[in-house]
Design a protein around this nucleic acid. Structure first.
Lengths: 172, 172
DNA sequence: CGTATATCGTTTAGTGCTAAAGGAGTTTTC
DNA sequence: GAAAACTCCTTTAGCACTAAACGATATACG
């Protein structure tokens, strides 16, 4: 039996009290996902600040590193993989370029296209950061046992897949 | 039959391929929560824009409305309930005050304190908005059956409760 | 072919957050 | 009961995003 109770239960109860006919069923999932995402975001921002980085740059470098050699992708593809607009990537790249972490070059195939690649400095930096972060985030989930984590992943995957169909991505 | 596969599986597989010794176990939960939160955020922003509102103002008005009569709370308490800094609330209140949706008055008990209350206009606006939004968000979860939704809520509540202990709230 | 349409990346305006600093009022302590 | 410490709210600087507008190239079509 879980006698666990959180702020989100309060929110749901409050709407039920104030407006008994309003459907409150989505709150338990949606508001909790929001709140957890915010806590994780705040935590990651601080962790990155401690390492002299920021979350946006980390996301950019990690995406390029993960792509495998030669650690380069077109802007459009980075935007898709990071789930932000191409304008956001443009800004991220400009910032990272100024710190010599990435380079831009025109695409060979397409005169409009720009390919962004990791510099050695950028490669180094992400290499030194990614393990730290993933170890740390492992501990953030220690409230959940292996089985609970798998069950949670499975349900979130189902919801994520469906929402991607339902909600148009942030335009490009 | 979970032959389901999403972008997050790709991210996890890519790290495993590129750095076999890095612990990737947290990705399936944390990255998915992030992505889902972003999709929900984008969707809510658009829904609110369509209704001539914005998500920050909605959050403020909803918090006051939910508190019940007389629909007024001190800034500090709003910040806690909305899980943002008091500086953010200060800005939200200033914007909403300009549209005659809320009022500020000095607290009787504490010369430092400020109490923010809904105006009739603010009450009206949130009343007209909240049902629409909750009905809409109900449909966003329709990929999940009743039982899955309850299981998901339960696991998220467990994680949320634990993270609130672990991660310091955004100061303020 | 040449014009219309679409796509790619960038830029800009607008929004909204955190963190940190500051002014004002309150509580604690000796 | 005065000084120190704390709390409350606001303000500011800095970051980062979306949406929309804009040039530049690429593709499609009659």
């Amino acid at each position: 039996m879980d006698h666990l109770h959180d702020d989100v239960d309060d929110i749901q109860d409050a709407w039920l009290r104030e407006r008994p006919d309003t459907p409150v069923g989505s709150i338990g999932v949606i508001t909790r996902i929001w709140r957890i995402a915010k806590l994780l975001d705040d935590d990651r921002r601080r962790t990155m600040a401690r390492l002299g980085m920021d979350t946006a740059t980390r996301d950019l470098l990690a995406t390029l590193r993960r792509a495998g050699a030669p650690y380069a992708l077109p802007v459009q593809e980075i935007a898709r993989r990071c789930a932000v607009t191409s304008g956001a990537i443009s800004q991220r790249v400009r910032r990272a370029e100024g710190q010599d972490l990435v380079t831009r070059r025109k695409s060979d195939d397409d005169g409009r296209g720009v390919v962004v690649g990791l510099t050695p400095r950028g490669h180094d930096l992400i290499e030194r950061t990614v393990d730290d972060l993933l170890h740390h985030e492992e501990t953030l989930l220690s409230a959940l046992g292996t089985e609970q984590r798998e069950e949670l992943s499975k349900l979130l995957r189902l919801l994520h897949t469906d929402l991607q169909r339902r909600v148009p991505p942030a335009g490009g």
